[in-house]
């Protein structure tokens, strides 16, 4: 293994130390050590079922873990999903984009984006609308803000989902296979929006199968296999000269086409 960042790095925004997760007998995550520094774009790759989605879902408490330490921006999460003030704080500071978009179908596009800023941050409707309109314009949805999610294409929905997460002014963005549910012709527009975000310096953790995108935007690529971090490093190293056999085998399968 090749840890670029030491775990003692004082300015880390995410810190995982010997994190373990079990689903019954299944050891989903095994001794995960991981540190992410502000501004870093970390792409996590691996086969289906390797635990990569579970890993980023642990970071905002959507999945519980059983042993180890996890803290986000100095807020520690406890094992076994014990709810704490820290969990709430983490969730307000960490945005997430899901594979299935998960927009709220009963709310208009604009209402999707302004709900959390109003209810969690306590913004007035006017202030939330102002921010919301700006973010929706940024992801290219300006003329559809009064529509409902189902009236939009998948690519548009995912861009709304991105704007919704950004409206909380997160310090870290998690992406759980954001383009896997999209028709091929819509993948580009979502990746473009993410690329722009990365260029602005957002800290991002991205689970994706888009290897070309990973190579382009990642500061660091992490390869997970059977719940373990097998290898990590800059994209050129991982993609061009992976040192571990599972990484080589995975990449030879996914890069073939």
């Amino acid at each position: 293994m090749n840890h670029e960042k030491s775990t003692s790095d004082g300015e880390a925004i995410v810190r995982l130390n010997k994190l373990n997760k079990h689903f019954g007998d299944f050891h989903v995550l095994q001794d995960i050590d991981l540190t992410v520094t502000p501004g870093e774009v970390v792409v996590i790759i691996g086969a289906s079922g390797s635990g990569k989605s579970t890993l980023i879902r642990c970071i905002n408490g959507l999945e519980e873990f059983q042993q180890g330490e996890l803290d986000v921006d100095g807020n520690p999460l406890l094992p076994d999903g014990k709810a704490t003030q820290a969990l709430q704080k983490i969730r307000t500071e960490v945005g997430m984009v899901f594979q299935q978009f998960n927009l709220f179908p009963h709310l208009s596009v604009l209402d999707n984006v302004i709900l959390a800023p109003m209810k969690v941050r306590g913004l007035s409707r006017d202030a939330a609308v102002e921010t919301g309109e700006r973010l929706l314009a940024r992801v290219g949805i300006s003329d559809q803000i009064d529509k409902y999610p189902t009236q939009l294409s998948g690519g548009q929905q995912q861009r709304v989902a991105l704007a919704r997460a950004l409206a909380m002014e997160p310090r870290l963005m998690l992406f759980d296979e954001p383009t896997s549910a999209l028709d091929p012709e819509m993948i580009g527009e979502v990746l473009d929006a993410m690329r722009e975000l990365a260029n602005e310096g957002m800290t991002m953790m991205i689970v994706t199968h888009e290897m070309g995108f990973a190579r382009e935007v990642a500061d660091r690529v992490i390869f997970i296999d059977k719940g373990r971090i097998v290898e990590e490093g800059p994209p050129e190293t991982i993609f061009d000269s992976p040192s571990e056999a599972p990484t080589q085998s995975f990449l030879s399968r996914v890069l073939k086409h």
Binding site: N60, G61, L62, Q88, R91, T92, E93, V94, G95, M96, F98, Q100, N102, L103, F104, L115, A116, K119, V120, A161, R164, A165, M168
Partner: peptide, 15 residues
């Protein structure tokens, strides 16, 4: 209601 709806709400910081 799909589980993703709850997850989306919680991930936005809603209680």
């Amino acid at each position: 209601i799909e589980r993703g709806q709850r997850e989306a709400g919680l991930s936005l910081g809603l209680s």
